[in-house]
């Protein structure tokens, strides 16, 4: 009984670690080849622990115009800044939503745009830092009307 409980605790700790490095574990299959794009961006690097705040509606009425805000705590100095933020769709026809490239002339690592979401899916965000670290975050979204009519 004690052993079982210990196993349970170990399991819980492992899940917590997963959440810290990169948000909820991804359920999405490689439907549109998004894993290839993520691997290309990672270029062999492991994910680091870090927090990306992803502001995306849980349910979008219109998938053609979905507001997205990404924010990372960063001093944005020459030596320590977020250099790129990549937005990846796991179930759009194409995985590339877009890439923001940031500089130390920016006061914060916070950017807003509007994206297309074709159907219910997980949106994946990778943030590259000037020291080479990469953070990951995910968010699930449901859409009433898909956004890939054009």
């Amino acid at each position: 009984m004690t052993v079982e409980r210990r196993t349970l605790i170990k399991g819980a700790a492992a899940s917590a670690a997963l959440v810290l490095v990169g948000g909820a574990p991804l359920r999405a299959d490689n439907h549109n080849g998004w894993q290839g794009w993520r691997d290309q961006l990672l270029a062999g690097r492991e994910l680091s622990e870090g927090t990306i705040t992803l502001d995306l509606p849980a349910v979008a009425e219109n998938g053609a115009q979905v507001p997205l805000t990404v924010q990372i705590d960063s001093p944005m100095t020459a030596d320590d800044h977020v250099s790129a933020i990549h937005i990846i769709a796991t179930r759009n026809p194409a995985p590339q939503i877009g890439t923001f490239r940031l500089t130390p002339q920016m006061t914060r690592a916070e950017v807003m745009t509007r994206i297309r979401v074709a159907e219910e899916q997980e949106i994946l965000v990778l943030a590259e830092l000037s020291d080479g670290r990469v953070f990951q975050q995910t968010a699930s979204i449901i859409v009433s009307v898909g956004g890939c009519a054009t």
Binding site: A64, Q65, V66, T69, I87, A89, N92, P93, A94, P95, Q96, I97, G98, T99, F100, R101, L102, T103, Q105, M106, T107, R108, E110, V111, M112, T113, R114, I115, R116, V117, G147, C148, T150
Partner: peptide, 28 residues
């Protein structure tokens, strides 16, 4: 800003029509 790049974006298919951006810059 003053000839120096401060922000860029690469559009993928998942970028919405009538693209809009909000970001923050240190004025110089």
């Amino acid at each position: 800003m003053n000839g120096e790049t401060v922000f860029t974006y690469d559009f993928g298919n998942g970028s919405a029509a009538n693209p809009t951006f909000t970001f923050y810059v240190r004025a110089a």
